[in-house]
Design a protein around this nucleic acid. Structure first.
Lengths: 252, 252
DNA sequence: ACGATACATGCAGAAACGTGCAAGAACAGG
DNA sequence: CCTGTTCTTGCACGTTTCTGCATGTATCGT
């Protein structure tokens, strides 16, 4: 583990948990408490945390926000994306949704993987351009600005003409009762259309999505093969999902 | 292994794993750590990564975007793009080709222009995302990696369902005898399909294209309304085109 | 007040770093 | 085809930085 990486990790912990206990972190990362203390001292000197006896506390909310944006958000998505990317078999065909998590999946795919990717997201398509062996099929249609994906009748129709082994969908909410939800009706319909064209559908849900719900239902649990998340498997919501028969792929 | 290849590999690792450990990469690629360190130093100098003790971490996305963008903006293309963008009327519908010149057109469009843009290029689509009042319609199909546009039967078919006032096409060669040419047959066919759906077609040709020819004919001169170029109007080739009845829009 | 824990400091081994140098490849010019 | 030049690459060397341990001191809870 890189020293700078360790520092980011500490800032991440600070943002997520609101405190750091030097002893615990040392045990977790398998390093000496001295190193943790030294890091905390440095961070405090830069004003990024407040040193207290036994560990550290966040400095000011503004600083924490900055640190959280910079390191925490990508981290969970990257873990989820790594697990999702491992589901893609060489030579296989993948339907990939839009959104930042899907984009992270592209970055997590091996550079020289030979596979076919079908997407309705121009952003995802552009990211795939430097995967020379990946075949790319773009689904056209009216592009919705807020989510940057092709939706609507034309896009759904285009989706009818493709088939795939695997579909990876992002959602904005994962809730035991509300199910898988998203904020826009057109997007929800498009996700349904995509899912229907693949043998297996997996949901990408970084931990902040777990337990939340949005306005429009995407799919019932029966239609999905599993949920990929970095949330703790012992999380109450996750345990309820497991009890409902949802397969959980932990991205710890 | 080529130096540039190695550089790309490093950037890929950075994107996929979020970090680089110099020692590991050196072992993996069978080169000395010194070379890796030198590469990382160079990348950091370009703002593409952040150098840390033991390896490197990703630079902030904003910086990377900026560094990537500033490398592509030749003066000639910008001038051509500015003239082309002025042809787009508020409320009008534009079919926009792929390629770097077309991308320059997007950047030349007023940020708040209300119009409809139809494109088969995911790159152009992504660039248009921060034009909030521009309606965007994406033509899907198999994406050809070298030119990064959707081509083939599906894309041509999708193009049949749209109409526009104006079509802006990029080409790789503009020659008095050979006409308008490009390097790929599929691309040529797609450009024809796009042109056929618009009332007017203008060709984007920065000066280095003038007088050159590629393998495949795109359109005869009769089908185009004009040529937009930054080449000197008294250039021999340009004068011959004028004599042939081609309208020249000078982008001096 | 006292034991326990956390802390700062100094130190030594290890790892990473920068620099200079030489061998080799790529290239331009004669 | 040869030659001089430039660029790259790996190695050697001295320097800097990191890390864990030991020691003594400060702080906390009881």
């Amino acid at each position: 583990m890189l020293a700078a990486e360790r520092r980011d990790h500490l800032l991440g912990l600070l943002a997520r948990q609101g405190k750091i206990v030097a002893k615990d972190v040392a045990a977790e990362l398998g390093i000496s408490e001295d190193s943790v203390r030294r890091d905390l001292r440095d961070l405090a000197a830069e004003g990024l945390c407040q040193r207290v006896y036994g560990g550290a506390l966040p400095a000011s909310p503004a600083v924490v926000d900055y640190a959280a944006r910079k390191s925490v958000a990508p981290d969970g998505k990257r873990k989820v994306a790594a697990v999702a990317a491992a589901l893609v078999r060489p030579g296989g065909t993948l339907i990939l949704d839009g959104g930042t998590t899907a984009l992270a999946v592209v970055h997590a795919l091996p550079q020289d993987l030979a596979c076919t990717v079908i997407t309705h997201s121009p952003t995802v398509a552009v990211a795939l351009l430097d995967h020379p062996r990946a075949e790319l099929f773009l689904l056209g249609g009216r592009v919705f600005k807020h989510s940057a994906v092709a939706c609507g009748a034309a896009a759904v129709e285009a989706a009818q003409n493709v088939s795939a082994d695997l579909c990876l969908l992002g959602v904005t909410g994962v809730h035991p009762e509300a199910g898988l939800t998203t904020a826009d009706a057109e997007e929800a319909a498009m996700k349904r259309a995509l899912s229907a064209r693949a043998a297996d559908t997996y949901i990408l849900a970084s931990s902040e999505k777990i337990g939340t719900a949005s306005r429009f239902r995407v799919l019932p649990w029966e239609k999905v093969s599993g949920l990929i998340t970095d949330a703790d498997p012992r999380d109450a919501v996750v345990e309820r999902l497991t009890a409902c028969g949802v397969e959980i792929l932990a991205a710890g």
